[in-house]
């Protein structure tokens, strides 16, 4: 099982985590666009191969955070708390 480094709890087996999907823009910033843009926001995903920013949740402690992961090699590159991208590697 993979290890994921929770920014709060440290390295833990992946079984302790829930995958929360790709990090997407705040809907508050998108709600005023055209219907088509909103549909694109709601349904479409960036499912292509590459490094993705994703939500992950450490279940026992209830911690949401962001992980950057290559969805082909399955390597986690960094993890940080939401909004802490600039300050924490």
């Amino acid at each position: 099982m993979k290890i994921l480094n929770c920014p709060i709890n440290g390295p833990r087996p992946l079984q302790e985590f829930h995958f929360g999907g790709e990090l997407r823009p705040n809907p508050l910033d998108r709600k005023d666009g055209a219907d088509a843009d909103w549909a694109d926001y709601v349904f479409n995903r960036d499912g292509e191969p590459g490094v993705k920013r994703e939500w992950w949740y450490h279940i026992p402690s209830g911690t949401w955070f962001i992980a950057e992961r290559d969805n082909v090699t399955d390597q986690f590159q960094r993890t940080y708390l939401y909004g802490a991208e600039q300050t924490d590697g």
Binding site: H18, G20, N26, L28, W55, Y57, G62, W64, Y82, G83
Partner: peptide
């Protein structure tokens, strides 16, 4: 509850959630 926790972060609101 888990989704509420995430939305609280996204909305950046001053809320404390307790399950």
């Amino acid at each position: 509850y888990r989704e509420m926790q995430r939305w609280a972060l996204i909305f950046g609101m001053k809320v404390t959630l307790i399950n």
